[in-house]
């Protein structure tokens, strides 16, 4: 079995994996980082979104072996110690989650979209950018609000593209 080594949430992680091991299974099963979720098998729901080398991707549609040497950030690694990332705070403040299952992917996607767009994206942009993230609870209303607020807070905190 090939050995893969990655930096996950700032820490070195390595394991012998079958080539067919998906990145999400590597995270969930080998590293027990169960914050990253699996909600579909057609690469659409976005519950598994993580950042790899600074880009948001779907961890369910990627093999662990593809990312030997990469740097991965999951929802567990977004906060700095006890200090939540502004986007996490914004989701709580604006009730951007209910059952919480889509939330990790949603927050990782939100941080990525702010990083790519810079500034505070307007509502239409946020809604379009969420094409790859499904939520069945919130009707997206408060997620959109939270991302707008999180984007503003990121400008203030210098968290933009700071990973």
């Amino acid at each position: 079995m090939p050995k893969v080594t990655m930096t996950v949430n700032g820490k070195a992680a390595s394991a012998d994996v079958e080539p067919r091991t998906l990145l999400v299974d590597f995270l969930r099963q080998h590293l027990r980082l169960t914050g990253t979720h699996v909600g579909c098998d057609t690469s659409q729901c976005g519950a598994c979104v993580v950042h790899v080398n600074g880009r948001a991707i779907k961890a369910c549609t990627s093999l662990a072996v593809q990312w030997d040497g990469a740097s991965v950030t999951t929802i567990e690694g977004l906060a700095s110690g006890d200090a939540l990332h502004p986007m996490q705070e914004a989701f709580r403040e604006h009730h951007g989650l209910q059952c919480g299952f889509c939330t990790p992917g949603m927050i990782m996607a939100a941080v990525d979209l702010v990083n790519r767009h810079g500034g505070v994206p307007d509502e239409a942009t946020i809604r379009r950018e969420l094409e790859g993230n499904m939520c069945r609870c919130t009707g997206y209303h408060n997620i959109v609000k939270a991302i707008g607020a999180g984007a503003s807070a990121m400008q203030g905190s210098g968290k933009v593209a700071a990973e």
Binding site: G35, E76, L84, L97, I107
Partner: peptide
């Protein structure tokens, strides 16, 4: 603001799987 959110926004929720 919801008390349960802390675990969900940090990936610490515990679902059956």
């Amino acid at each position: 603001a919801r008390l349960e959110d802390q675990r969900f926004i940090t990936g610490a929720g515990k679902y059956t799987d």
